[in-house]
């Protein structure tokens, strides 16, 4: 009894501090592989991927944005036309969570309240985790959806993208 509805095309972005694992998460999600080497992204890398959410096809256009660092802030203009974004922080570098918070503020300032999901990435490196339970509690209380991910092991990766996709419907 499923009615056929036309596929939705949605632009999503990956944003966060440099080296947090944005490109690795996309690679894991699309190709199921992981690479230890760090190849930083310049500008944007764009991929397309279709997935079914609640029997509805969504054609994602995934914009993997260059990470933010002290030299180059995130270019908010890339987010124009985006329906939502996956915010990525590195669990082994506390300051990447601060970067993430600041990005959310800046995006809200120009693009309005876009749906987003925070991927707290690299959770496979449990012994090196620098992000505290209290930090996460505080953000969750503020309404953030937080998923623990590892591009290396695959943990939480599909869930993070699907969770975001569901928010776009």
């Amino acid at each position: 009894m499923s009615e056929t509805r036309p596929p939705l095309q949605k632009k999503i972005c990956l944003a966060g501090a440099f080296g947090a694992g944005k490109t690795s998460l996309v690679r894991r999600f699309l190709q199921g592989v992981f690479d230890e080497r760090y190849l930083t992204t310049v500008g944007v890398k764009i991929d397309k991927y279709s997935l079914l959410v609640d029997e509805r096809q969504i054609d994602l256009v995934i914009w993997d944005l260059a990470g933010e660092d002290f030299l180059a802030p995130l270019q908010i203009s890339y987010l124009r036309g985006a329906s939502g974004y996956l915010l990525v922080a590195d669990a082994t570098r506390k300051e990447t969570l601060e970067t993430a918070e600041s990005i959310v503020g800046r995006i809200a300032g120009t693009e309005g309240a876009l749906p987003f999901v925070l991927a707290l990435n690299k959770v496979d490196l449990a012994g090196e985790c620098e992000v505290s339970r209290e930090d996460l509690d505080r953000l969750e209380t503020a309404g953030w959806r937080i998923l623990r991910t590892s591009a290396k092991s695959g943990e939480g990766v599909t869930e993070a993208f699907e969770d975001l996709a569901r928010r776009l419907l």
């Binding site: 440099f18 760090y38 190849l39 930083t40 992204t41 260059a66 002290f70 030299l71």
Partner: peptide
């Protein structure tokens, strides 16, 4: 040109991560 630019950024970011 993109690869050249990428390498320049890579150097700075690798250094930042190593120092950290």
């Amino acid at each position: 040109e993109a690869e050249e630019m990428r390498r320049a950024y890579q150097g700075a970011r690798d250094l930042a991560l190593t120092t950290r």
